[in-house]
């Protein structure tokens, strides 16, 4: 048993060196920095009170220029960005977390029923569960993002008050057009009715 344990331990330990020492494939193109696809143009930004959604209108001529530039470059993989954005979970994560969560609830319920004679233990468990909720809520709220004005593309995003965040985001519709030769950003800028105290 001791020999088997030692053998397994040695195998796992030496596997560190084996896997860590495998060389990368000789990919010269990966060593040279890739130029980015870029064209210089002008963008109009128009705030319109009657618009309902933000729109980015790109002339077809400029899309064609950009496409021509992209075709001369390697396919830049943005898979890393997709994986590290971290907002979605894949199927395996869902299955495993669901499995463990189910086991936790079932076995926790069994323990709870078995220890019904010990109210002190139950109080401890309830306190621990509440504490974990509080801790999770602290994490969630501490990491809460900026207010709604910085999370939707409207005229309010351009206000001085939003500058402290330094960034914002929101849904936008990207369209193409034949009619213009400049990129246009249409931003809804609904009029805010004055509050009762203001006149």
């Amino acid at each position: 048993m001791k020999k088997l344990t030692t053998l397994i331990g040695m195998t796992l330990f030496t596997s560190t060196y084996c896997f860590a020492d495998i060389a990368r494939p000789n990919n010269l193109s990966a060593q040279t920095p890739k130029p980015r696809a870029a064209i210089e143009t002008t963008m109009d930004i128009r705030l319109r009170p009657d618009e309902k959604e933000a729109r980015l209108i790109i002339p077809k001529s400029q899309i064609k220029q950009l496409r021509a530039q992209l075709e001369t470059l390697d396919e830049g993989s943005n898979n890393a960005a997709v994986f590290t954005s971290g907002n979605g979970i894949n199927g395996l994560q869902t299955i495993m977390s669901g499995l463990f969560l189910s086991l936790a609830i079932v076995l926790g319920g069994v323990w709870f029923m078995r220890s019904a004679k010990s109210p002190r233990a139950n109080k401890g468990v309830i306190a621990a569960i509440l504490l974990s909720f509080v801790a999770s809520a602290t994490f969630v709220f501490a990491n809460a993002g900026p207010p709604a004005e910085a999370r939707s593309i409207t005229g309010k995003m351009f206000s001085q008050a939003m500058h402290i965040y330094g960034f914002g985001w929101g849904k936008i519709k990207v369209e193409t057009t034949d009619d213009d030769d400049r990129i246009t950003l249409i931003v809804p800028n609904p009029k805010t009715s004055p509050s009762p105290g203001e006149e």
Partner: peptide
């Protein structure tokens, strides 16, 4: 002593490790 409460806690923590690995 009956420390079998560790088992459901362990599974709960394991589910967290899968659903929010970075956290």
């Amino acid at each position: 002593k009956d420390w079998s409460i560790a088992i459901p806690i362990v599974f709960l923590l394991a589910s967290l490790a899968w659903v929010v690995p970075q956290y």
